[in-house]
Each structure stands twice: as C-alpha cells, then as structure tokens.
Simulated assay, not measured.
Amino acid sequence: MAHRHDDLAGHDPDADWSLPGWLYTDPEFFEVECARIIRPSWQIVCHESDVAAPGAWRTLAYLGENIVVLRGEDGVVRAFHNVCRHRAMRLVDGDSGCARKLVCPYHAWAYELDGRLTGVPMRRDYPALALEDNGLVPVEVEIWRGFVFVRLEDDGGPSVARMMAPYDHEIAPYRFEDMRRLSDVRCRERQVNWKNVGDNYSDNLHIPVAHDGLTRLFGKSYAIEAAGWVDRMSGQLVDRASDDPWERFYQRHLPPVPHLPAENQRLWLYYKLWPNMAFDIYADQIDFMQWLPLSPTTCLLREMTFALPDERREMKLVRYANWRINRTVNAEDTWLIERVQQGMASSSYAAGPIGRSEVCLRSFAAKVRDRIPEARLHRAPPPGWSRRVRAI
C-alpha cells in the first residue's frame, strides 16, 4: 500500500498523535470548530447546470444559515443569505426552484435576481428605509470546474482552485464542466461527529480489514497521499474476476471512455478537500459527498452523483453496479464510524498513536491544531476555556 506526504506538521511534537477523543463529543469545542473551521471553509452547493436558466436557484442549509444560489438575468451566478431584510423571513423554501424575482411570502418585499431590493408595499411607511442599503446580503461564491461553492466568511484561506491545484491536471480529462446530475441531492443524518466521517474517508489502514469488496477490486494497488489541502486516494481495478456478482459485472462490462487516458479507464480516484468534502471519481461517473456538522455527535451527509451524458446501455448498467458496490462500502463505513464515535466518548480514551503511513490523518490533525491550539490537549480543559481565550 503506497503513501506519500507533503509534510505540513514540520517538527510538531503532537504529529505522532491522533486528535483526542474529547474533540468528537465536546459541545464547547464543537462551537469553536464551527466558527474557526466550517464557517470560513468552502461548501459545495450544486453544479452550474443546476442553475442553468435565469432565475433558477438552489439552496444549502448549514450552521443555522440558509444560502440561496441563483443565476441572474445577466447570466452571473450569485449567492445570498436566504433572509428578507424586513422581518428575516425565508424568501424561498425547499431545495430548488425558479423565479423571476424573489418575493417575500410574509410582506411581499421583492428582490431582483442580483439581490437588489426594488419592491416594498407601503414604502413611505418606513422612514428609515433606503432601498439601496437593504438588498440581500451576499455570500462569497467560487465556481471551480463547473461546481458552485459558497463561503460564509473569508479568513484568508485558499480558494477551491488553489486547494485542487496539485491535481488539476489529473482531473481535467474528466470534463467536470460538462457533467450533469444523475440524481437529486441525497441527505442522510449520521450519529457521529463530522470529523469522524472525514477521518474514515482518508484512513488507508482500514481498507484491507473492513472492505472486502474494495480489496477484491484493487488488490494491493490502493495508495494515499496528502498534498496541502487535499487528500488523494486511488486504486486500479484488478483483472482477476471478483466472486461478488456486482463487482464482477463492473469489471467485465465497464465500457471504454474515449476522453480519458488509458491509465484512467480502470482507475478509481478519491479526493478529500479541506475540511469536509470529497469527490469519488470513476470512469463512469463521479460522486460528491460532504459531511455537515449538526451537533457535537451528529452530522448530515449530503451526496450527489454526476456524469457525462451517455446513452449506452452498458454504461447505465455499470453505473447501477457502481451504486450497488458502494452501497455496501457505505454500510460498512457507517457501522465502523458509529462505533468509533461511541468509543470517543469513553473515559478510557484520550488520544491514540498515529502511524507514519497515516499521512492523511496527520495532515488533517495538523490543520485542526493550527486553528484551535486546544486540540493538542489529550483531555478536555475545564469548561469555559474558549471564553477565557477570547477574553485575553
């Protein structure tokens, strides 16, 4: 099993230790990590093709915020807080829709697709109102290879393009920009801290132990590396026919994909972007997943599947086989992380030693410690520690 690491930890004395268990259960740490890690980070909302027409919109809810992404009459994709400036009513409800204007269902204040407030019933009744100062509150947007991301706050962190730069050349042949959604957003709540999902995603050592199917498919080719803001995992499909019928079907019937290099035809690629998003990239399709924090011990998995239009019957069947294979993998991972979460709450667990080969876990832990120094403590500090830090 190969692994490579661009060392972010340097001479960090804690580099050989995992993040401690209290970080996965503590309400106070949860509030701090949401503020310092999740709010300033990029979060995927949709693909550009999901808001193709003027007025088309999609929403994303997390950390108590509801964000609406929409395309303006000028063709520009923008994002705003989905909150009326009058009485804080949500302007649009649901996951998606299309509108010529955003009209508040409470008092009918009307906003243009570029966020300007242009309609207020009984306008003269509001002596303090200036239309130009009460447009929708914007949210920062980045479009990377056709995917639309938003960020609640800018702390000087890297763009999505910068994070993915080490692998942009590898991703380019897949033509993300031309892909379309195969299925709508799937959301599933999990009884685990959000970090547990990401830790498991980048954990190389559990593959041969817990995932018989992936081991049959990849043999010993599974490899990982950490490059700055991205973890990369990969495996080449072996030629030996699997004993599992869906795995065997996928091996035998995956059709050639002309736009991909020969070495990518049977390559499965996995990229985890800081701090809570991942792309699973196959020759037949790509899956996107993010794990959004809900509480110290729960999170929401948000998943989407995209692919290039392909009407070949064998491609449709192979995509179904892909889903069957990964449904098993997801069930195995859910079983694992739920039990890890339970163990994190045990008084017997502080922090565990971390191996040199666990380069992705090392990289993630280093960035968490950089943003929240208390993450170095193997046991939780006395309650109120975050308020004392702010007071200094």
Rank of each mutant, 00 (worst) to 15 (best):
E31Y: 03
L102Q: 02
M89I: 06
R39I: 01
L267E: 04
C360F: 04
R252F: 05
A35W: 03
I44Q: 03
D155S: 01
D310M: 06
S159L: 01
W323K: 10
H5I: 12
L260H: 10
K101E: 08
V150E: 04
L205V: 10
N204I: 13
N66Y: 00
Y24M: 07
R387Q: 15
F364G: 00
T305P: 05
N276P: 04
Y201W: 15
A99H: 10
D50M: 14
R175F: 05
N134G: 01
S386L: 06
E33K: 02
P54G: 08
R87T: 07
G146D: 10
D133I: 03
E153Y: 02
L117I: 09
I38G: 01
R145A: 06
P40F: 01
M164K: 01
N204S: 09
W42K: 01
P54N: 04
F29S: 15
Y106S: 11
L254G: 08
D16T: 10
T118L: 07
R190D: 13
A108Y: 11
P13K: 15
R151I: 00
G94P: 14
F176C: 01
L254P: 07
D95S: 05
Y106K: 11
L269V: 08
L182F: 13
P158M: 00
V257D: 06
P173M: 05
D333R: 12
D231H: 12
I67G: 02
M179R: 02
L136V: 05
V185N: 06
H107G: 10
N322D: 14
